[in-house]
Amino acid sequence: MTILVTGARGRVGAAVVRELLAAGEKVRAASADPESLTALPDEVERVRLDLASPQGLHEVLQGVRKIFLYAQPAGAARLADAAAAAGVGHIVLLSSLAIDSHGADTSPIAQQHRLVEDVLRASGIGWTFVRAGGFATNALQWAPEIREGRPLRLAYPEAHSEPVHESDIAAVAVRALLDEAHRGATLRITGPQSLSARQQAELVAAAAGRDVVVRLITPEEYLKELTAFVPEAVAATLVAYQAERDGRPHRTYDDIPAVLGRPALPFGQWAKENAEAFR
């Protein structure tokens, strides 16, 4: 049996590949640029796949029985149809807890993930949705400032999130791929603690042996800075998300312990493992 892993260039996808190999599974890693998958072990089959394009889709799916899928609305229905025709029996989707959040009906992040979930529900293929909260890796956005001793420009330094280690996301996804008990389940994945942005920045700075200074900026300034990297609608959603969580710890979920039989990895551990990025 071959398991197809999309998004294999990302941290979660690469971790899924490694865990599947450790479990003795045959893995086919897909990327729009397979030549970039140099960090993957040699035994991994590398294939070209652009989910927004039908080119090569049927060839990529030959012999595939399970898929780890990143949520990309463009081409989701085409992929589901081709997967069903190829005999794929189970798709594990990396989805988002934005679907469960306040304002999900107007959030482009929630909407794009919900669209792919809906496509898979209607596909006739077995599915598992891994709805992850904020990734611990989001803290890497602060690496240049912390390395260079510059202040972090934050509009809502006390806004809380529940950062989840990419290894936990991957471990849950792999368990869902290999264990039929999670077919048809929606797994909600968070880290074990609700931490403010300031607390997270202090943890990574401490792990790296650096100081951190927060400079408060206005929401309007923050929105303008974000729109240099993401569409305006997404930037507005992120600002509204932080405003809603300003000074408000949120709940964490127990699906990681339930699936893996161990506690979720704390953000402080992620900070220590990635300290070099902040030095």
Results as ranks from 00 to 15, higher is better:
260 L>Y: 09
143 A>G: 13
63 G>K: 01
135 F>N: 01
185 A>M: 00
239 V>P: 00
97 L>T: 07
192 P>Q: 07
246 D>K: 03
256 I>H: 06
174 V>C: 07
213 V>I: 14
11 R>Y: 12
42 D>Q: 09
208 A>N: 14
34 P>H: 05
160 H>S: 00
259 V>Y: 07
196 S>A: 09
164 V>S: 04
181 A>I: 00
77 A>R: 11
267 F>N: 08
74 A>Q: 15
82 A>R: 02
224 K>Q: 14
242 Q>S: 03
55 Q>I: 00
167 S>Y: 10
124 G>K: 02
77 A>E: 14
79 L>P: 00
23 A>Q: 12
201 A>D: 06
176 A>R: 11
114 R>H: 06
229 F>H: 15
71 A>K: 06
78 R>D: 15
16 V>Y: 03
252 T>Q: 02
177 L>W: 01
226 L>F: 06
173 A>C: 05
212 V>C: 11
67 I>W: 07
62 Q>D: 13
151 P>I: 11
274 N>C: 13
29 A>E: 08
4 L>E: 09
107 S>G: 08
249 P>H: 01
59 E>N: 10
108 P>R: 14
26 K>E: 15
240 A>R: 02
169 I>K: 12
256 I>R: 06
248 R>M: 03
182 H>W: 04
137 T>H: 13
133 G>F: 00
17 V>F: 08
271 A>W: 00
44 V>R: 01
7 G>R: 03
254 D>T: 10
74 A>F: 14
212 V>I: 13
4 L>K: 06
92 V>Q: 13
188 R>L: 07
215 R>M: 02
266 P>V: 03
258 A>E: 10
158 E>S: 13
27 V>R: 07
83 A>F: 03
46 R>A: 03
101 S>Y: 04
147 R>Q: 08
101 S>T: 01
30 A>C: 05
56 G>K: 04
208 A>C: 05
163 P>K: 15
152 L>K: 02
171 A>E: 02
177 L>M: 01
21 L>E: 14
103 G>R: 06
174 V>R: 11
105 D>W: 02
233 A>C: 06
171 A>W: 03
130 V>S: 08
